[in-house]
Design a protein around this nucleic acid. Structure first.
Lengths: 230, 230, 230, 230
DNA sequence: GATGAATGAGGATTCATTCAT
DNA sequence: TATGAATGAATCCTCATTCAT
């Protein structure tokens, strides 16, 4: 049933004999990556709750025991997955989303941010599952909340560029709304392909821009831009 | 929470024979309602996947066997629940959302629709769980899609009042976006209480109105309204 | 006294009838007895830790699921088993071991008590396993201790008949020693059969009588009796 | 949790070649001792059945593979541990317990023997676990029995000093009883500390002496001694 | 129709043991 | 030799579903 055994024919023979511990660790790291990838697949297919560790192991081509050599339980897999995704997000786009030149027109800033996020989410479909999870039980909810909080603070950072003197409560609410809108749009984007997908991306941008536009009333001309963006 | 004592000691034996089938039916209906109510509670608490039929039966105060006398499986419960919710929605708000006087300003129309939906969703928290389910497995997805489709067509109806000559594809996309935006906002609304909840309701309306406003360009003055709605 | 069912007390109001439950419950009770008997067999064969619930179910001739319909986990089985054994012990020998006529010679009192206990233990070999368990984990240790404490207090009661004015600390220590001696002897008794077993029973009595004899110095002549008992 | 690098940097390179096999052996011996020590800790903490080989390896600071380089399986560890303990016992107290001057009063002989054994058991808590194990599965029971047999023969030897012309069957039975009594007392001794422990040690001696005293009837005056020992 | 016992496959997790390096 | 990854059967327990009464 289980075909496994180092199927990665990467020909990594150039590694050194001195670095034996490193080799060991390297193998472990590879397995971990492999398992996380498998978990990503299974999570995005079935959702966290319905995902079984055996299925993840099978998807990764290893035995269940191997999975538990690297992760103490199912939760830990999702948590590590979330951590890695956040890390990558951070690496790709810098520590903050924010450092936007306030002179940048809103529609450009939003458009760029959405494009980036969409690209990231298309590359990592699990991110959506983890971000979106409504049925996350136990200690994992904390992780979920942490991920959420991180995203929110980034969005707040971005918004601050445009709304430097906003009431913190309003700012928080606006960030929540933006994240919600984004998630809603993302779901539609991921559900379509090709031209239709692009159209939804544009609609998502429109929705965000139009939602935010009145809040940055001093940036003249943007309302007009937004109105003609379709 | 309904008591279920069928020991009708009414002494009216002659009537009993004739009415037995009806009584039976009536009892069955009561049981079904009881079970669906319990299912609604359990589904909204734990989500569909994590909900167990035994838990539903226990919540309904009946044995698992009884549950399976009325529903062939777990899926069927959710499906029936969805159907009933749609039915109730239809009863409450008419066959279509649409019959809106085209002269109604957009913000009023959207505001009224959102208020209605929010009220409905607050009254029936399961609706959100069923509408939102990202981890719906197997054949149940069809039902989910059906529910979705119904909502979409209603939204399209409403939109048609304002965009009578829109491209069908654009119309569909717009409806999808509206539904997505609504779901996103609903999640935030349900997650808060009191004044904060009201604030989110307003934000949700704003988001929808501003999103739609440019599409109904002929309705002069509404952009202004939207801009000042906060 | 009955098995502890998983009872989420969720406001189930007035339920079922009066006659059927008897039958149902009767079947359940029989299953419980069956399962406890199987557990007794398995526990005495392999010890608590090494005993598997599947093995118990198999021994009882039922599926694993059935076992868990009556017991929430492995611990509960052992606990219920212990409770039933204590209950039976109490039923057989009265609430206390003690009400011994102080005029009874020590050797007779001890002999009678040992005979009774031996008979009980031979009839219920698990009792030894539960009493003796050195590797009992988790919450079950409490039960074990409770069982132990019960036995100790009974022994103390008996001793008080002979040592009415003993220091409580000494009394406790003496009771512990008696129980320990008894357990040690019991192990040997259970390990043999026929005449050899009888011989060990006699040796156990001797050990206890001789240990206690000097403590009841006022009962003249008992030392002599003890010395010739072999 | 000790690091375990065998990079013995003794700088004596010339010796190395000749002595490599010896060094190897020495290293192996050290590993074995290390593993047995770890096993002793784990066994006495969790019991044999619940002890995992991985836990032993971890406690020893080595990998599971290393453990299996020296022991073919879990059983073998316990067996070797038992053997070493017996060996040490023999080394410490001579080949026999017996060489007791028959003129030694019984209470002195028993008191000395008990003190020695108690000291040994306190120094090696595993001994109790191995000696006492009621849940020993499979082939390991043989080893357990062997250990037991050794102890018994030593006790018999000691008894022979006092009962030179006893029936072998009686002798064996008496030895079994003494060992049982000792184990029972030991359990109580190990369960207490300080003055209470000492008190239990004394009680254990009393129990043994009083048990044996009548058997050595020709040693006048000992009965008296036993009676006043408390 | 109602009950609750019964089922058994499946899920998370552990562990003795083996294997490649 | 030492390592630590790998295995897979076994463990405890759950749950959708069926059955006898």
């Amino acid at each position: 049933m289980s075909a496994n055994r180092e199927k990665d024919s990467q020909g990594n023979q150039d590694r050194q004999e001195k670095e034996q511990p490193r080799r060991r660790q390297a193998r472990g790291e590879r397995r971990i990556a492999q398992l996380l990838e498998a978990a990503a697949t299974v999570f995005s297919t079935t959702g966290y709750t319905a995902a079984s560790t055996n299925a993840i192991a099978r998807e990764a081509g290893v035995s269940p025991g191997t999975l538990y050599q690297f992760f103490p339980n199912k939760e830990a897999i999702a948590i590590e997955l979330g951590d890695r995704l956040m890390h990558e997000l951070r690496e790709m786009y810098g520590e903050a989303l924010a450092p936007v030149d306030p002179a940048t027109p809103l529609n450009e800033a939003v458009g760029a941010a959405v494009d980036r996020f969409i690209a990231f989410n298309c590359a990592h479909p699990v991110f959506f599952a983890l971000m979106h999870g409504p049925d996350i039980p136990g200690r994992m909810a904390e992780e979920h909340d942490a991920l959420h909080a991180t995203l929110l603070s980034r969005i707040e950072g971005l918004l601050l560029s445009f709304l430097p003197d906003a009431d913190p409560a309003v700012l928080a609410r606006t960030a929540h709304m933006c994240l919600g809108l984004y998630k809603a749009g993302l779901e539609l984007v991921l559900a379509h392909e090709g031209a239709e997908r692009d159209a939804y991306v544009q609609e998502l941008k429109n929705a965000l821009i139009r939602y935010l536009d009145p809040l940055v009333g001093d940036n003249l001309g943007q309302g007009e831009a937004a109105r003609t963006a379709t």
